[in-house]
Nucleic acid binder design. Structure first.
Lengths: 218, 218, 218, 218
DNA sequence: TATGAATGAGGTTTCATTCAT
DNA sequence: GATGAATGAAACCTCATTCAT
C-alpha cells in the first residue's frame, strides 16, 4: 500500500496513511514540538527517529503513519519556524502609522521575535540545506514573505517622501534589515555579551534610520 | 596508545601518529582540499570518512594516521576557510589610504573573496555547530579577526573625522559590515538573480557610506 | 536515546530496546547459547558480534536490540555459567546426611558438573578479566556462592564432631575444595591422560577426607 | 626474503632477521619486559604492537626484526614467566634436608614467588589459550617442571617413610600442591582480605602436612 | 489506527604487518 | 640494522524504515 492521504500542513503535501486531517494536524504538531527541541540540542543528523517518537509520546510505528521520511520532519519543523516568525511579525502590522514609525516598530518586533526563538532561527540557518531542493524552496519562500513586509514599508515610505533611498535599492535594503535582525540570533556569540536586547534594537534602529532619514540626526 | 605527534595546523593541536611535521602539514592539506569539496556538496554528516580518504588519494588507514576523528577534519576545514578569508582580505590592507577609501576597498575585497568562496562560507554557517565547543571557539576566534579589521578602519575614520558615527557603535557597525558581506553568500538564493557581484558591491557600499559619511550623498 | 528497558537476567540490568521481558529473556538465552560455544572455541576477543548474531539466528541489528555492548554478552555468558554450576550442585544438597557423606556427595557432584562443562569453567577463568569491574564483581559473587556451600558443610561437620579441623581454617578449606574441583577443568591437559573422571573423584576425595577425618584411614 | 635466523630464547625457535644472537636476546628481553606490563594491565588483545614497540623503546619496524607475529611476543612473555617461577623455586632446592622440611620450604618459597609475581601468574592463566597449540605445549611443559619438583620431594619422602601416602597418588598430590600455591594468585580477590601471605602459607602448610604426616598433629 | 520487533546496509575507527628508505 | 609511513581488512555499533500483529 502506498501512502496516499493528504494531511495538509503547509504547501508541500506530505503523504500519510491516516485519513482524518484533523488527527494528522494534531499529531504533526506533537511531532514538530518534540522534534524542534531535539534538533536544536543535538542537530538534525544526530537526532534519531526513535528519540523523536519517544518525545512525541508515541511509538515509532505511529510516527511513520504521519510522515514518510525523517526529512519530512525537518521540513515540518523548518516550515513551522518560519511560519511562527512571520506570524510574530503580523502583530504590529496594519496599523495606520507613518512609514518610519512602522519600520521602527516592525524591526523592533522582528528582533524581539527572533530573540524569543533564537535557537529556532539558528536551526533554520544550519539545517535547511539538509532538505530536498523542493522542500528547501518552500521554506525559503516562507522566509521571503518577511522580507516582503519590509520592502512594502520602505516603498510606502518612499512614496510618502519619508525615506531617502534610491528606489532600486528597496529590495536590497529590505534584505539587509531582515539579515541584521536575524544576526541577533546567528551572531549571538559575538553580540550577547556586548549588548542587551534593548541596546541592540535601539542602536541598530538608529543606524538604520540615520541611513534612511534625510540627513537628520535620529 | 595515544596519538602524540604535534602536527601544527592552527591553534588546536590535532594528534597524529606521524612524526615528520612537514609531512603532516602536506597530508592535511590534501585532506582539507578533498574534504571541503565533499562537505560542500553533501554536507559533513553525509560525507563518509572513506570518501574523504579516497578523494585525498590515500587509504582510510593513512587518513587516520593524520587525524583522530572525523570531527578533526571538519575543524581543519573550517579553520582553513576562515584563514583563507582573512588572508584574502590582507591583500588590500596597510596602504596609506584615507579611512573611507580603505573601507570601500576592504569591503569590496571581502565581498569578492566571499564570492569566490561562497560555498565555503555557507559551509561555515552550516557546520560549525557540529564542532566541539573548544574547536568551535577556535573557529569563531578566527572569524572575529575579520571584524576587528573593520572596527580598526572605523576607529581611524572617526579619529580622522571622516566618519559620522557614535564611538560606541563602532563594534556593532563592524559586525554589520561583515555580515552584509557574508550575506552575499548565505542569501545568494535571494540575491544572485537580482544583482551581479558588481552591483551588489556598489549598492551596499553606497548604502553603507551614506550612513557613515556626514550627510552628503555618496 | 538511551536503552531503557529492564530485561532481567541477573543482578546487573543490561539495557535493551525491547519492552516485552519474556521476549528479552528468551532472546538472551539464544544469545548465550550461541555465544558460549563461540567464546569457547575462539575466545571472546576473536569472536565477532556478527558471528554471535548469526549463530543466534538473528540479524546483527536484532542482536543489538537486546544488549548494548559486546561485553554485555560476555557478562551474560559468564553469569550463566556460574549459575549453572551452582544449580548443578543444588541437586545433591539438603538431604539429611552426615556431614562427611554430604561432603563426599557434594564434591563428587561438583566435579561431575565441572566435567560436563569443563570448557565453560575454563572460559570463566580466562575471560572474566575482560569484564568491567562491576560486572566482574557480579560474576565472582556468584562463584562465591559455591564456596559457601562447602564452608557450610564443613561447619556442620565440625559441630557434629565428624571433622578434625581448626575452625579458623574452614573458609580456606572450602576454597581449596572448590579449586581442586575446578582444577579438573583448568588442568585437564595434565590430568586427563593420567586419570579417569571416576579415579580423579575417588582419589581427591580420599586425600581430602584423610585430611578431615580424625586420623583414621579412609 | 624469509626470516631465517635462529635467535634462541627458549625451546621454540622464533624467526628473526637479525644475525647476532646476543643482540637478539638483549632486544627480546626488552620486548618481554615492556610487554609483560602491558599485557598485565590491558590484556594481550587490547595491547597493540605499537604500544609494545614504544614501551620497548624502539620503532615498530625494529620490533618486527626480532619477532614475526604479535603472538610470538605472548609466547616469549609466557615462557619467561614460567622460567622465572621455576628459577625462583630452584633457590631452596638441593640442600640435604628431610623430605618434610624440604616440602615445607619449597611450598613456602613457591607461594612467595607467586606472591611476588601474582599478576604474571594470572596472565598465564588467562592468556595461554591465545597461543598456538605448539607454543602452548611449550609453555605448559615449562609449568610441568614445577610439578615435577614437588613430585620428587614426595617420592623421596615416601621412600624415607616420612610421608603417609599411596604411591599412586604422588603425581596428583604434586599437582594439588602447585595449584594450591597458584591459587594465592588467581583467587586473590577471595583470599587477600582474609589472610596475609604469612597466614596463608602457614595454614596451607598445616593442612597439607596433616594430610601427609602419619596421623600426628603438626 | 497503533505498536514495536526485526532488519541490514553502512558508518567510524583500529591495528597487525610490510617495505621502501 | 633501524625506521616509520602506508595499508586495508575487519571490528563494533547505529538507525531509518518496514510490516505482522
Amino acid at each position: 500500500m502506498v501512502k496516499g492521504g493528504e494531511g495538509v500542513s503547509g504547501p508541500k503535501k506530505i503523504p500519510t496513511f491516516v485519513k482524518d486531517p484533523r488527527l494528522v494536524e494534531e499529531r504533526r504538531d506533537q511531532i514538530i514540538r518534540a522534534a524542534v527541541d531535539l534538533f536544536i540540542s543535538k542537530g538534525f543528523h544526530k537526532t534519531t527517529t526513535r528519540e523523536i517518537a519517544q518525545a512525541s509520546k508515541f511509538s515509532i510505528g505511529t510516527l511513520y503513519e504521519y510522515i514518510s521520511t525523517k526529512e519530512d520532519i525537518l521540513y515540518l519543523v523548518c516550515y513551522d519556524i518560519n511560519r511562527r516568525m512571520r506570524e510574530g511579525l503580523e502583530h504590529v502590522l496594519g496599523r495606520a502609522l507613518p512609514a518610519d514609525e512602522e519600520l521602527r516598530l516592525a524591526f523592533r518586533r522582528l528582533v524581539e521575535v527572533i530573540d524569543a526563538m533564537d535557537d529556532d532561527v539558528l536551526l533554520i540557518y544550519q539545517e535547511t540545506k539538509s532538505l530536498t531542493r523542493e522542500a528547501m524552496h518552500d521554506v525559503l519562500a516562507k522566509e521571503t514573505e518577511i522580507t516582503v513586509v519590509f520592502a512594502d514599508i520602505l516603498k510606502r515610505g518612499l512614496q510618502e517622501g519619508v525615506f531617502r533611498l534610491d528606489v532600486q535599492d528597496v529590495d536590497l535594503m529590505a534584505e539587509n534589515i531582515v539579515v541584521l535582525a536575524e544576526m541577533w540570533a546567528f551572531r549571538r556569540w559575538a553580540l550577547r555579551h556586548k549588548y542587551t536586547l534593548e541596546q541592540y534594537i535601539e542602536r541598530q534602529t538608529r543606524l538604520l534610520l540615520s541611513e534612511l532619514l534625510s540627513g537628520e540626526r535620529v
